[in-house]
Nucleic acid binder design. Sequence first.
RNA 1: GCCCGGGUGGUGAAAUUGGUAGACACAAGGGACUUAAAAUCCCUCGGCGCAAGCUGUACGGGUUCAAGUCCCGUCCCGGGCACCA
Length: 904
Amino acid sequence: MQEKYDHTATEKTAHQYWERTAAFKAVEDASKPKYYCLSMFPYPSGKLHMGHVRNYTIGDVLTRFHKMRGYNVMQPMGWDAFGLPAENAAIANKVPPAQWTDENIAYMKLQLKSLGFAIDWSRELATCKPDYYKWNQWLFLRMLEKGIAYKKTQTVNWDPVDQTVLANEQVIDGRGWRTGAVVEKREIPGYYLAITQYADELLNDLDTLDQWPERVRLMQANWIGKSTGVRFAFPHQIKDDAGALIDDGKLWVFTTRADTIMGVTFCAVAAEHPLATHAAQNNPELAAFIEKCKHGSVMEADMATMEKEGLPTGLFVTHPLTGEQIEVWVGNYVLMSYGDGAVMAVPAHDERDFGFAKKYNLPIKPVVMPGGLSLKTDATPVQPGEDASAIRPLEHLWAHSWNVGFGMHGELINSGKYNGLNYEQAIDAIAADLAAKGLGEKKVQWRLRDWGVSRQRYWGCPIPIIHCDDCGSVPVPDDQLPVVLPTDCVPDGSGNPLHKRPDFLNVACPCCGKPARRETDTMDTFVDSSWYYARFATPGNDQAMVDERVNYWLPVDQYIGGIEHAILHLLYSRFWTKVMGDLGLVSYREPFKRLLTQGMVLNHLFSRRSDKTGIEWFAPEEVVLQKDEAGRVTGATALRDGNPVDYGGFGTMSKSKRNGVDPQSMMEQYGADTARFFMMFAAPPEQTLEWSDAGIEGSYRFLKRIWAFGHVFATTIQPQLPGQRKLGNAKLPENLASLRREIHLLLKQANYDLGKQQFNTVASSTMKMLNALEKAPRLIDQNGGIAAEVIEEGLGILLRVLSPLTPHITHTLWAELGYAKSADESILDAAWPEPLDAALVQDEIELVLQILGKTRGSVKVPAGADNAAIEALAVVSEIAQKFMEGKPAKKVIVVPGRLVNIVV
RNA sequence: GCCCGGGUGGUGAAAUUGGUAGACACAAGGGACUUAAAAUCCCUCGGCGCAAGCUGUACGGGUUCAAGUCCCGUCCCGGGCACCA
């Protein structure tokens, strides 16, 4: 074998072998447990970034590990290929998005191949291809039939110059990003998917996802936002100009605290509420305020700090239980989009209402005595630590905003017939009374909204609808699917280019046959990514969305991706799965059994602030770091002018901050194995990873040492191997037994860590194995062939444990050093190593010796010794005698295999 | 504001879930080889101390034979959510 490590040659050899043997082709096989390992598919933006490399390396390590463990593994890859960046690139380069996308896919595929990922490329898919998106359209039509998809008007950002709809991120300070024109809000029709029909199941099934990170489940639960309460109405006689009762004479509100209804002193409605609109007609001040509220809501950042403001409408509604007249206010803190756009206000028990009431001098009426407080003779509560003789009226307590009531449950007071009831009793009684009057009932309110999927965009999956003047919006018949998107359009930024394509637009109505128009809206790209993992299981089927194979491979056993998809993508995919399940297409209810959210890749940030140009960012290779004598970074100077730049610590790699590292140049210089190893070694997978050039060098050094040891093995150890092997359970001389034990202990640790998906310590274990083996060759002089056998076994273990991380170098060494049993066998076919009990046993074990809980040293005891024997040995040991200072042992704690603690 | 994570050497981190804190690596310092440099190899490396030893996991308490790990309180850092009624 070659003496020096040549990563280019090594990687080429391995790639050719995998290609030639179709090593990663996955075929259904009922005789083996299956393992479907999936990394979130990339958007073909042009080239891979380090986040991709990290993501796919994690997936590949798991894939290869399971393959060697005997699982039937499948790791596919595809392209999330529709989306806005392709349109933007088209505008900039005057190239059709399809062409740009295809070119990017071709390049990125090469990059993925050069990283050596064990991907079954025969299952590759791109969401922009008709054979994929046909099934988006097909399922959309099924949803339409079941009432899960429906049409309603939606508000969009409209650029009046470009005549186009803008995504939220394309609106900058209220203006279009390209034209600078003031963006208008427009109401246009669009299609929605009723994800809220599945809200309950989506929430409840989170409990079954016990192999998901807790925080992701929490984020989803918050997003779904279930709250149970009572929806009820305040009757009124307020009429509009035509003389009709506004909202049928009922102001509906939702509350989770129906027990405090008797404490309502006013109501607040959103600026867009019909009552507000009505009241503003003859009230310029109110009209101005409402206008301000509507505009204010655009600026997200101000929302958080915004002061609670309001104005009275002068309108009154009737309290449904007391009959009192309740004034209606417009409040800037009431959202039209949540519930009914109106709230009851109970200042005594809600912090926000309280602040509002204090500001505008509205009455505060306490109706709940918080639990845990006792009452004084005048029925006021005693504060913890307060002198019980102090007499204060109830109102005084709240007027001083002593927070005894906000959000707390307790017994009702000041509430007439409900006095004395607790939280649950009060809600039941009040809900019953409201129901009897036809003015309310218990209700569950969700934060989750239906999913608007219409996008007024060209580069997406066409929505399969035809608009006919006579028949209305008609679904495209199944036999006319797919509705194919023309791929030769070049968007220029003004409007949807499909509008200029008569060949696409003009079509006969499927109902009546008259000329009609095709829908030009396309689907949200989240639709594309909501089921691609299922299609991977059934490649090549042009007759059905999925087939029986889907129930073999799915659910995905391990899904890996960024935390940024914790909510939308994962929630939509779960929803889509449930819909597919209800249509009888799949037999599982959750798509992803186990989820790993990998951390981001960070790098140093360098910048310089100048008055003229603002912030200028420096790439790490453009600066020189300054360090103090301890090696701590104290500052940096620019290479180009020698002047200082600001060091901003670590931040996520980004184009704009110029701190990204290009995987391509990395791989050319050091190779894929080094990149992969560093990624795995530098941090546990879920944590952020700090890029380090020195760390890369270190990983490279390790691989060079592995290779060098392989060379030593081939030249000096292998020739010593006896023809007849006798290692097995053989009794070895202590120096060999100890080396062998060390390797097997490290293997045990590595297997344990792999189970935990803690790959950084797996990498550590392989380094420790090499450290041990490098010292071993001299053992041959004393022990001959048997030592060579121990080393051979150790290196074989090391290569296999390392192989999921650095598959190329281990592939080559495995073959070159004679580990492969035949020419068509590679390390991938080797069984994963397991530690041998025979290698782990030892005659004597060393226990930690503590006196009074303080570690003082260690004591050697025979391996089989029982607690009493260990105790006896420990007490008479030299160290124990020294530290016990002649005092008798009061108690001795023996933790088998670990330590002895003597208490005196 | 609420909800999650975190806080361990100069740095990234480890500690088999209550049992020798700092494994493994990076950086730094010293040495060997070399005409020299690079590469490689060896040694040192939490703090104090010549040493025995003492001390040390953000801070203050507690439980325990034993606490980085568990409990209570405080202070920071990161992330998510939010006028959600």
